[in-house]
Nucleic acid binder design. Structure first.
Lengths: 218, 218, 218, 218
DNA sequence: AATGAATGAGGATTCATTCAT
DNA sequence: TATGAATGAATCCTCATTCAT
């Protein structure tokens, strides 16, 4: 289980950002804004430099290429996005502790990722936009999602199916429904129509209810 | 109801493309392939010309700018994608004729859009990738989706709710679940993981079942 | 005197234009307008074709290159512009017939060239604009102006000086004053400020008076 | 009189060019040479770069467009060319000090502009060639010439007419004669036939004599 | 560490000219 | 004779990246 980390270890990775100089932080902020706005290919380093208030050359002191800058922004977010499912005791937490049933798990995942995207939606937007164009992102996603999170979640689904709480569909299909429904909500909410006047709590509740009834044992 | 067309009228519009010369068709084909592959901004006209087997100038004889080429490819697909919901008698078809219940409607929509995306997934992929970067696409989508399809579908949902077949949620939310679930399936199937070995008929059935149970009156 | 023509012969040259087809005439008209407006280098053959209402290829059926089209327009005008001074009996006309004195000659030249430019100012404008960039124009001008007109006019000036009617300056210098003054008026009048409200008769008279007093024997 | 400057102020503006880097100076020199030689539209930035010994991109680091490069060369020359007439005490200098009569004034203007064009004829050539094609040049000329120089010179002409030294023609017409004659000389001397073997002092003297007699009270 | 001038490869686009119809 | 699709070289300009200061 070498690919599993404690929350503390994961946070440590993120905290390494603290080492960044003031200028470097400005560069990253500007890059996130501009990448999210017009896409990686259409963003120019000179525009980023201008918005960050640094010289053009400064960017390349910290990042060897424009692509490195993109990766340094998106890659950690991929990991962090999947982090809850990588954490060593996620499965036990859900099955043995207080999240004892399906509903608890769905609520936990939705709430948890809702908060995450609320804070990180610009980077998530960049990821969504660029995932098509950079095999590296797909590779990283495959690694963290498919190889670890998926397996763990499929075990969980099987567990619920065995307990008789969940419909008998292939676990992959059930997973697809869950991801599709939750991500559909979050992407709609934060990426596609962030300016709409959402009643978040109500929508979360509807989403959970929809998932529960859609997946419950008949 | 001037914005509603018969299927015949819509098809007529598309058939006007037949006027394209052999070279022009080659250009469009190459452009679709390359735009889908690396995105509009990262695609170069010289690469498109080379793949199409024409001179670079030939592209600009038919399309004033690279952006025009993109639009000429994607815009008609936006319309066609929404077309079934624009057609004059869609609502009657579903409510009064043989599609008398929710299940029939969902099956109809899924099957219908499945076939469409099966044929047009490269262009749909381009649309998904570029919709973030071109206000014109969002504008067109807003026009055809929000102003026409949404209203009609919400009426339909209300209709099913009044008949007691459907859960009492805001029609917008129900619509979100339907779109999210169907599009989630189709995008996963054709855009994100087309190389996976899908059992399409089974997945369609699961998707319908998931939607039905998720949305059925409790 | 092989470079001297009768007025009839010169007009014959111009009449060869009659052979032009309707389309060709349209091309020439459009070309004159556009060359005069934006200059030869910035004018495009496709714009000329559009304005002329012909296909792009049609221009090249009549003129091998864009430059040929320019030359076919400007070259004859160079000749015609100098024509009065090339005509076999111009000198006799002025010195022996009714134009017996300096004033008569200056009036004749001014009036004569005034009418010419009034009719041909678009082509004269093109000539002025392009003479810097095409050695061929300078060559043609040198040929017709320097080799023939200048010699004849210098003889005339010497003639007036010998008669004691004209100041003792080098004939080249006198000629420069005459050309400068007359062309200065005509270019100002028709090329630089054609939209001003000129009192042409008064300005012609002032110009003649200025020349006469400037050049008269002291 | 906010549009009037001391000679010192005007020179200060020009001296700010000193800020140019070595490469930038090379670019400007090469551009002047090539614009003068083949005209703005027919000059290519790659040719300018090659002649300047810099990369093509270097041009665009200093000038956003090729047109900006042209303007940065010609615009200051327009101002400088008119500068003597804008200077605060030009009128007093001519009327009240040592240049008390018409002859002094004409000699002053001719000599002064002769030296100017001697130094700046390539840029003046560019201006003459391009003034037809760029409304901006005409606008700038109108501004500096018409609004300031013309009015002042017309006052001066009226002043001489009132003193009985000058012929009674409309001041605009007198001005036209002066400009036409002086510019005719300078353009002929430096732009059209710079290779001729001119006796400059003699020609200046003839030009002054011609103007004086042409404009003197009868 | 930071700057910003310089680079030069590559981009979209234009255009005179050709040629099959 | 006239057309207009096709060409491809050349154009202006952008941009990621380098490097001397």
């Amino acid at each position: 289980m070498s690919n599993q980390f404690s929350i503390e270890e994961l946070l440590k990775l993120t905290d390494e950002d603290v080492k960044m100089s003031e200028k470097q932080k400005k560069v990253v902020e500007a890059a996130i804004e501009i990448f999210a706005d017009k896409g990686f290919a259409a963003a120019s380093t000179s525009e980023i430099a201008k918005k960050a208030g640094v010289a053009e050359g400064t960017i390349f002191r910290h990042y060897q290429t424009k692509k490195d800058l993109l990766f340094s922004i998106v890659m950690p977010t991929i990991t962090t996005f999947i982090a809850p499912f990588l954490v060593r005791n996620f499965l036990q937490d859900v099955t043995k502790q207080n999240h004892q049933d399906l509903e608890q798990m769905l609520r936990f995942i939705l709430e948890n990722r809702y908060e995450f995207i609320k804070k990180n939606h610009p980077v998530i937007k960049i990821l969504l936009q660029e995932v098509f164009f950079h095999e590296e992102f797909r590779g990283e996603l495959r690694k963290v999602v498919l190889e670890h999170a998926v397996e763990k979640l499929k075990q969980l689904i099987t567990h619920f199916q065995e307990k008789g709480e969940m419909v008998e569909m292939p676990p992959e299909t059930v997973l697809r429904m869950i991801i599709t429904t939750i991500m559909g909500f979050l992407i709609g909410r934060f990426i596609i129509m962030p300016d709409l006047d959402w009643d978040d709590e109500a929508e979360k509740e509807y989403t959970i209810q929809f998932l529960l009834h859609g997946l419950m044992k008949r």
